Computed example of a mutant assay.
Amino acid sequence: MDSRRELRKPGFPAQPACKWLSLFVVSCAIYFLLWIPESQPSCFSAVVKCLPVLSLVLFLRSLPSSLGSTSLLQGALLCSAVGDACLIWPDAFLYGVGAFAVAHLFYIWNFGFTPLKLCLLLPIALVTVLYFSLLLLQLSPDMVLPLAGYGLILATLLWRGLALGGIAGWGALLFTFSDCVLAWSTFVRPLPHSRLVVMSTYYAAQALLALTATQGSRLKAS
């Protein structure tokens, strides 16, 4: 009985949840082993790319109810999976950006605004303005407004993640880093091994953000 109670404490996923984390690890390995060329978009490549994120949805659904609702985190991951699928096809790029923007709003809603930590806003705002000032100069006019709006939402996610600290902070930081590398490599100059950097940090970020569900009372109840 004592050991079962211990597993239900925040930070200790129950045994059924662990198998979905194992599926996440395996599906990530499959993605990197297959390494389907980006020049070959297909439904199969979309499934391979989305499977790690979808396995995190199943992980959240299997957590004990004593940890609280995970609906907002599940919504964020499902929107991310839609975004992943859209980014397989270049013509659907802006749809993917929109799906990820909604995912970030779900994450922000889940994190809440306590503690506020306004002291983080200035450094985040300075870095965001500097980065996007350089990036937006390289964009076509039809991309400027959507990506500027996305950048504002992403900066807000970073603020809320860092305000909470712990794995929420690391998850938000890795997500921001992944998106910044992707944007720079896509619109400014191709970076060496950019896809490997983007996808490894992206999957790590999603896993950390999903694991915030195990922190219990540290996060805003959804």
Rank of each mutant, 00 (worst) to 15 (best):
Q138D: 05
P192W: 13
W184K: 08
I36M: 06
D179G: 05
D91E: 07
L77H: 01
S80M: 07
L134R: 15
A81F: 10
S27A: 01
V144F: 00
S140I: 03
L121M: 12
Y31K: 12
T156R: 06
G98T: 11
Q15L: 15
G83Q: 11
F12H: 13
L139I: 09
P16E: 10
N110K: 04
L219K: 00
C18F: 12
G161N: 01
W159V: 00
L33V: 11
A163K: 01
A46Y: 00
V127N: 13
A148K: 05
S71G: 08
S133N: 14
F12P: 01
L130N: 15
G96F: 14
L56T: 07
T156L: 13
K49Y: 14
T70G: 11
R4Y: 05
L34P: 00
V197R: 03
V97K: 11
I167A: 01
C86T: 07
C43Y: 04
A46H: 02
C43D: 04
S45N: 04
L23V: 03
Y203V: 01
G165Q: 10
L219F: 04
F111Q: 12
S66H: 02
P141I: 00
S140Q: 14
W170S: 09
L63R: 00
E38D: 13
D142C: 09
G75Q: 01
G98P: 12
S62D: 15
A210T: 11
A207I: 08
A99I: 06
P146L: 05
S42E: 07
I108A: 11
A46W: 00
A163Q: 05
G83N: 12
L121Q: 09
L7D: 04
A210N: 09
L121C: 15
V82Y: 03
A85G: 14
G96W: 14
V53S: 14
A125L: 15
Q40E: 05
L152D: 00
A210P: 11
W35H: 03
L211M: 14
G11I: 05
S42W: 09
V53E: 14
L116F: 06
V53Q: 06
I88Q: 10
F113Y: 08
